[in-house]
Design a binder for these strands. Sequence first.
DNA 1: CTGAAAGCGCTTACAG
DNA 2: CTGAAAGCGCTTACAG
Lengths: 334, 334
Amino acid sequence: MKNNITMKDIADRLGISAVTVSKAINDKEGVSGELKEKIKSLALEMGYRYNAAAKSMKDGLSYNIGVVIPERFTGLTQSFYLRIYQQISKNLEECGYYSTLHILNSEDEEQMTLPRIYYEKKVDGFIILGQVSKGYIETIQKMELPKILLDFYDEHADIDSIVTDNFYGAYEITNYLIQQGHRQIAYVGNLYSTSSIQDRFLGYFKSLLEHRIPLQDHLILNDRDERGKFIDIELPESLPTAFVCNCDQVALELIFKLKKLGCDIPNDCSVVGFDNDIYSTLSEPHLTTVEVDVIMMAQTAVKLMMEKIRNPHRKSGRILVQGKIIYRDSVRKL
Amino acid sequence: MKNNITMKDIADRLGISAVTVSKAINDKEGVSGELKEKIKSLALEMGYRYNAAAKSMKDGLSYNIGVVIPERFTGLTQSFYLRIYQQISKNLEECGYYSTLHILNSEDEEQMTLPRIYYEKKVDGFIILGQVSKGYIETIQKMELPKILLDFYDEHADIDSIVTDNFYGAYEITNYLIQQGHRQIAYVGNLYSTSSIQDRFLGYFKSLLEHRIPLQDHLILNDRDERGKFIDIELPESLPTAFVCNCDQVALELIFKLKKLGCDIPNDCSVVGFDNDIYSTLSEPHLTTVEVDVIMMAQTAVKLMMEKIRNPHRKSGRILVQGKIIYRDSVRKL
DNA sequence: CTGAAAGCGCTTACAG
DNA sequence: CTGAAAGCGCTTACAG
């Protein structure tokens, strides 16, 4: 680049040393206020731009955080992780950090190929956004960099993680259905697909237990195969009065399906979702659901990452981010 | 970081110089094949990671591209730009480049505050994804870095831009409606909101002109205010037989609205959209629409950026990326 | 094919 | 308060 002004150039124009310019520009001690102002205004005038690469080299930090999202979570219909990523990027910027997105394709995940940004020291830490295979987690584990699992966790790994309180959210919304008089309540989701779905199921189950409602196998409805691909939901012969869906998207699908069967929502069947994402307001009626706090999740992840960079021994364990029920019109009081 | 292996460390172990290690690792000439292999395998064994910051400093390149998306295009309901961003990020990686996302908030846009990544030389170029104010474009113009406008353009600025061929896409889909026997065709969109909406309108208009169908003011329906906020669409007293909507989201809204009025789609009214995004398959019936080629747009942007980095004088002007009509079930033959 | 020297732009630690 | 020296890890250009 042509217009390449350095601290030395500023120093020369002022007949001082680059050290002093450095101190002034970084607001460090050791420069008189007067000189500092002079330096800063000249820097501005000369169109000086700080060279972050030089600093990076000095202190071995890139001031970048890598965010890894498995490709399968980023289709046309899935903007959730991209939205979290966006928030992360915003929050990082406020800390003088930047983010680099790495979409992890399934091939790299299987072969446990770490992102190139790791091998090029382009990042100081990783946020893994979305469940990856055990093998991949183990590989990640070996990197001697701060890392955080976001929106999922793994018991065998002691990597810090931040997740929505899926268990409690599903527990609460099931309680709500029961308060509304429902007793025949189905759960929609593949229990072996992701830990989120599993935990939401368990929250649902806890609510049933507390209310002495027996768990019925035929009321656990599968919505996807184990690789996450949606399948047609098979309804039980006699319909329950309510459905707890593991996510809004599936709730929306279910509503479409029920409607085609001539079922009126919520008069014949109540349906609740989870996430409060775009799908929650696309159905008629709009979905009662559990809102996942995207802002808080991103914020927590960034804050924790900054702490871990400062102190690599910082351990947080598993942090739960509370959701909250959004009451809309898909539930009927019996 | 503790585990900090450098080329020098490898060189010392082998009793050679760092220069030779550098050549080997970068697959450059001037090392015997045998030695090169020995160096590479030792590097692997020692867990060597290349320090990109050092290279960055040497050649004044960060190997990062900044992608700027105005915040207003990134709401819960708008994943389009985030999807393009994702593709950009993927494509860049294949070129050994990485992306940094900068969400431009409206305050910074008004005050023409450039992203910090610019002032810290953290990026070698900018892709502006989504229409920004004239003032902001002018400010961007002053940066002596390669820059590309993506999904919009500005006549007064001679920044290279890449846009969907909105004009032609709307022209084609309107032609299709006319072929299907429609004559009363409305356009839905605020003509003063974005250049995309304007150009799509003009394509629609050209089709009318060619078919000697007069343009009727009361068939141009506003869908949003000038800041992009959606408003309730006011329908004309007597409904047209078809609607060309400037985007799928609005088409979906319109369908909901028409249905509430007891209008059957497509039997009473045909509706077409634009984008082929998530909204296009959420309506019943699914939308006939123009698919925007996200993959190609991202690819073109990255390719052009790489060329501009190599040769800063490279000019491409305005590149149009063709869309294609996706035929579904929202149009009826009259 | 191999390597000594110099330099990229900044900062740290120390001396004045 | 100010600055000379050394160093961060790599690469380029040149010499052998």
